[in-house]
Design a binder for these strands. Structure first.
Length: 226
DNA sequence: CACCAGGCAAGTA
DNA sequence: TACTTGCATGGT
């Protein structure tokens, strides 16, 4: 049995986390994340959405699509300045253009522009390669791992941390590694489960848990506020 | 008008 | 290690 210390006592969370998943899934249904059709588009979206509302990212991706720029070779060749101009609606466009170029440079120069070759790495090596790119931190890297490359890695973001705090599932400062371990050690390592779970937490967060410690309308309230 | 959104890296102490 | 700051657009 895997246990975690929380609220001063040791608790088995594996059943609770599955119960929460079932409640959220029955409330929202499948979320079908990540919005995006190809691994490349998903990876680009992961960088563009850093501290940015998704609706602004959509505009930037639309711009890339309309210019037929969702292509490793074309992105490798384009000037960083031109790329910045294309992705302008997503905000932080100068730094994000550099970050996109850093990722594209890795794919093009180390893997011949073929994401399938990048995928030959095992989970651990793959994660390290992604995190070695300047501009790809833990959340962005893990989003690419899970949603673009279909690896069983749990993605932690602001919503996930807020979720644990709001529902008092874990005390202490929710740093990335700890939160990720909390989910990964208490759930079966399943790509589909991790995919839907993260998406469901975001859906819940957008609807009910923005920053209130209590969520009167929250579909989880019966089971979590005892 | 102010505040925030699916972060990250670099700088400071 | 633990803060702080710059990066920038668009919606509420």
């Amino acid at each position: 049995m895997i246990t975690w210390w929380a609220r001063g006592k040791m608790v088995d969370y594996s059943h609770r986390l599955m119960k929460i998943f079932e409640l959220l899934f029955s409330h929202y249904g499948p979320r079908r994340w990540w919005p995006g059709d190809t691994p490349l588009e998903i990876a680009i979206g992961a960088i563009l959405t850093q501290n940015t509302a998704w609706r602004n990212v959509e505009k930037a991706i639309e711009n890339l699509k309309s210019l037929d720029m969702l292509d490793v070779k074309k992105l490798y060749d384009i000037e960083t300045e031109s790329l910045a101009n294309i992705i302008k609606p997503s905000g932080f466009y100068n730094i994000k253009a550099k970050r996109l170029k850093n990722l594209i440079r890795l794919i093009y120069e180390e893997y011949g522009g073929d994401i399938e070759q990048l995928k030959r790495h095992g989970d651990s090596d793959l994660r390290m390669r992604l995190l070695s790119v300047k501009g790809i931190g833990e959340e962005t890297g893990d989003s690419i791992m899970l949603y673009a490359l279909n690896r069983p890695i749990f993605v932690v973001d602001a919503y996930t941390k807020r979720f644990l705090e709001n529902h008092r599932l874990y005390d202490g400062k929710p740093d990335y590694q700890t939160v990720q371990k909390f989910f990964m050690e208490n759930l079966p390592k399943d790509v589909y489960l991790f995919n839907e779970y993260h998406a469901l937490i975001v859906s819940l967060g957008k609807d009910y848990c923005k920053r209130a410690p209590k969520c009167p309308l929250c579909p989880l309230k019966e089971d979590l506020y005892r």
